[in-house]
């Protein structure tokens, strides 16, 4: 088969595979039933989301003037000064979260990242740091549960953790591992 035949084949295969799929009509409701079972996002998530959403405010000139006066007064008497980090309340972390240290001995690697369920398999979210002995380390805060993960060496080599059990649900021939963070 010549080159044009090859391209024609790929195009025809792709065209065939682009056919739409008929999902069961009850699918959406099934998903939403499961979603509702998990309930609304946590209160702090909802509060942050509310602040991020554009809100419509209706103010009369009188109430606007009153609001401005209250704001000026509040700033004048407040002990908190803008730019003072002591005045910022940190977002509460999950108290059950534990700091987990991940290590990989890879002295010849030029970069190593940690990718797994906990960062949605993001390749850049959790870079690891090289120690003087050639070991790559990082720490991640994880709440109790079971996680799958892998080390990504030099951007494209998936390396399982030699110190951890392999994942039972591995995808490409034994490249991921599992860790179970126990309840305290």
């Amino acid at each position: 088969m010549n080159e044009s035949g090859h391209n024609g084949l790929v195009e025809r295969v792709a065209h065939e595979l682009k056919r739409s799929i008929k999902i069961d009509p009850s699918f959406d409701e099934s998903v939403m039933a499961e979603v509702r079972r998990h309930g609304k996002p946590a209160m702090w998530v909802r509060v942050i989301a509310w602040w991020r959403r554009p809100q419509q405010l209706s103010l009369s000139p009188l109430s606007m003037a009153a609001s401005a006066a209250v704001l000026i007064l509040a700033v004048a008497v407040s002990p908190v000064r803008f730019g003072n980090p002591d005045g910022v309340e940190p977002i509460a972390e999950d108290p059950a979260a534990r700091v987990i240290r991940f290590e990989l001995d890879a002295p010849r690697a030029s970069s190593v990242t940690l990718s797994g369920d906990f960062n949605d398999w993001d390749l850049e979210a959790t870079p690891m740091t090289r120690t003087s002995s050639g070991e790559w380390v990082t720490t991640v805060k994880l709440v109790p549960g079971r996680y799958e993960y892998t080390f990504v060496v030099d951007g494209d080599k998936w390396v399982p953790d030699p110190a951890a059990p392999p994942s039972l649900f591995d995808d490409f021939g034994g490249t991921s591992s599992t860790i179970t963070v126990p309840e305290v």
């Binding site: 799929i21 999902i23 998903v31 939403m32 979603v35 609304k40 996002p41 942050i48 509310w50």
Partner: peptide, 17 residues
């Protein structure tokens, strides 16, 4: 995220197929 969970159905419908 602000609590209107039912609107997630629109996202499901949008990307389901």
């Amino acid at each position: 995220l602000a609590g209107d969970v039912d609107r997630y159905a629109i996202l499901v419908e949008r990307y389901r197929d």
